[in-house]
C-alpha cells in the first residue's frame, strides 16, 4: 500500500513540477535565443583560410540533464511497444539548446563576431537504475572569431 502511495506521489511530482520547470525553461531559452540571435554560429570553417587579422578562442557550453519520474514511467511503458518517445525528445532538445546558448554566451562575453566549426557531443554520465536515476550531458564546442 505504502509503495503504491509513494509511487503516485513521485509520479505526480514528476508530472506537475517537471512540466512546470520544462515550460519555464523553454520560455527562458526562447528569450535568450532572441537576445543572442545576432551571433552567427556555423558548423563549417575547419579548413578555411583566414587572411584578415583576427583573434580566436575555443568556447564551449555544457549542461547535464536528468529525466523526471513521470518521464521514466512513460518511457518504460513506451519501450514495451516501441516508437517515438516524445518526452525524451523534449528533454534532449532542451539540453542541446541550453548548451548552445551557454556557448554563445561565452562567445559573446569574449566579444566574438562568429562561432565556427561547432560540434556537439552527448555522453551518458549516469545510467538508468531502478530508483529513476539517469542523466546525460550535452556538450557544445566551437571556435569563436574576433576580428580586430
Amino acid at each position: 500500500m505504502f509503495t503504491v502511495i509513494l509511487f503516485v506521489i513521485l509520479l505526480g511530482l514528476g508530472y506537475f513540477i517537471g512540466s512546470a520547470v520544462e515550460k519555464s525553461h523553454f520560455a527562458s531559452i526562447a528569450e535568450r535565443e532572441q537576445t543572442l540571435s545576432y551571433l552567427p554560429v556555423m558548423t563549417t570553417g575547419k579548413k578555411e583560410q583566414f587572411d584578415a587579422p583576427c583573434n580566436s578562442q575555443l568556447v564551449y557550453g555544457s549542461v547535464v540533464v536528468g529525466q523526471d519520474y513521470f518521464k521514466l514511467f512513460i518511457f518504460s511503458l513506451i519501450s514495451l511497444v516501441g516508437g517515438r518517445v516524445t518526452s525524451y525528445e523534449k528533454l534532449i532538445e532542451r539540453a542541446r539548446r541550453e548548451a548552445l546558448l551557454r556557448l554563445k554566451q561565452s562567445a559573446a562575453d569574449y566579444g566574438a563576431e562568429a562561432v565556427i566549426h561547432l560540434r556537439f557531443e552527448t555522453a551518458v554520465i549516469m545510467t538508468n537504475n531502478r530508483n529513476g536515476g539517469g542523466a546525460f550531458e550535452v556538450f557544445a564546442y566551437g571556435t569563436a572569431l574576433q576580428t580586430k
Binding site: G14, G18, V64, V65
Partner: peptide, 14 residues
C-alpha cells in the same frame, strides 16, 4: 532526478 531538468551539481563538476 525526481522532477527532472538540469542537474546543476553535475554540470559544475563536469
Amino acid at each position: 532526478n525526481l522532477v527532472g531538468g538540469e542537474l546543476v551539481g553535475y554540470t559544475e563538476l563536469l
